[in-house]
Amino acid sequence: MNQFQYVRPSKPKAAIDARAKDQNSQFIAGGTNLLDLMKRGVMNPERLIDISRLPLDKLERENNTFRIGSMALNATVADDKQVLEKLPLLAQALNAGASAQLRNMATIGGNMLQRTRCPYFYDTALPCNKREPGSGCGALEGYNRMHAIFGFSDKCIAVHPSDMSVALVALDATVLVSGPKGDRRIPFGELHRLPGDMPQKDTTLEPGELITAVEVPEGPFTKNVHYLKVRERASYAFALVSVAAALQLENNIIKDARLAMGGVAHKPWRLTEAEKSLVGKPATEATFQAAAAIAMQGAKAFKHNAYKLKLGPNAIVQALKNATNVA
């Protein structure tokens, strides 16, 4: 790890100024991903701006909207009584991620800004366009078991690793951002981007922009929800495929639906067409299977991840079954 300068501003404005002034700086909050990457020489910022103590850790609720400060800890949010009651899908997704210790460190803002876990990105001796633009994508013809089946490019086939983000995109969250040019709101689905020709850029944030909070509307999804994470061991592993499912039921007829997948794309993957197909239908396995088939349209696999073409729809069906207790 390189030597770096460390500063700890007390106000968001000062943090944003510091970041804007220095191209080689990074914000650090929980540090659970950044330090990991710095130890391996994948990221080498010359200045760290410690934002962990900024007064951005509040969890507020008004006008049927949760406003969760970006510095709130994953564990705090996952254990919050109101979140458990009104946004159980978010709580489930948070608890599916990492370990109890990491959830005590990682912040909500940091969680959404996790970098990919692609092994080529992590090893500076291997090619990776995300880490070193122009060096090539090691995964494209390499070990691509964990990689994308949607929205990839020939420059990058990595996936976004956050579980929380899958729930947030399903729940129509909005990201609140402050930057050198002022504040703005980003619909959660537009925070992360597809790799295209610039895989080095994970998000649509502008230089110096700081996520201050995420807003989540309460919505009707308090009961029939499930976050399903399929992984290679029973806990503490990144997803092969994950599914966030939320339904509003009336007499077993689906009134409204939210569906998103993780582990399949460079961003949390919202399945709007599949959602539409669910609405108005009875909550049955047949309905779920039809939606899963729609969800998988356009999916394309590589040498080692073809299983996702089958695991994906299966996981969607199972998540919907779990959400509705359909046997």
Binding site: I28, G31, T32, L35, D36, D50, N104, M105
Partner: peptide, 13 residues
């Protein structure tokens, strides 16, 4: 009072 991974915590923080 909170359990954390000290390997991913900078001492200065």
């Amino acid at each position: 009072g909170k359990r954390v991974n000290s390997c991913l915590a900078l001492a200065v923080m």
